[in-house]
């Protein structure tokens, strides 16, 4: 099962560190990372494998969301199917 994590917000120190720390602790494997900064606005998209995730999907969503609130970022985790269905035939 694959998921897409998106992180949006103002750039600051430690974004990738804090997000990947949670992923490492919950057994989520990162397959791909794309990241860019446009006029100070940070956006990152990660494709991850949640097959061996040690917590429930909802819990992972909440952990990342809470971290986002703490760092003033918008962090979301969604099943990858929604993006596949819209953009691939």
């Amino acid at each position: 099962m694959k998921a897409v994590i998106t992180v949006l917000g103002n750039d600051k120190v430690g974004i990738i560190y804090n997000v990947t720390k949670i992923l490492a602790e919950t057994g989520v494997n990162i397959l791909d990372i794309t990241q860019t900064i446009l006029q100070g606005y940070f956006s990152m998209v990660m494709i991850v494998d949640i097959e061996k995730c040690t917590v429930k999907f909802e819990e992972l969503q909440n952990m990342l969301k809470d971290k986002g609130v703490e760092m003033d970022l918008q962090i979301r985790v969604q099943h990858k199917q929604i993006f596949d269905s819209m953009h691939t035939l």
Binding site: T34, T36, S43, V45, K80, F83
Partner: peptide, 12 residues
């Protein structure tokens, strides 16, 4: 393979 823009487009 999904690209960055497509994912951001869906979110938007």
């Amino acid at each position: 393979m999904l690209n960055f823009e497509e994912i951001l487009q869906t979110l938007s």
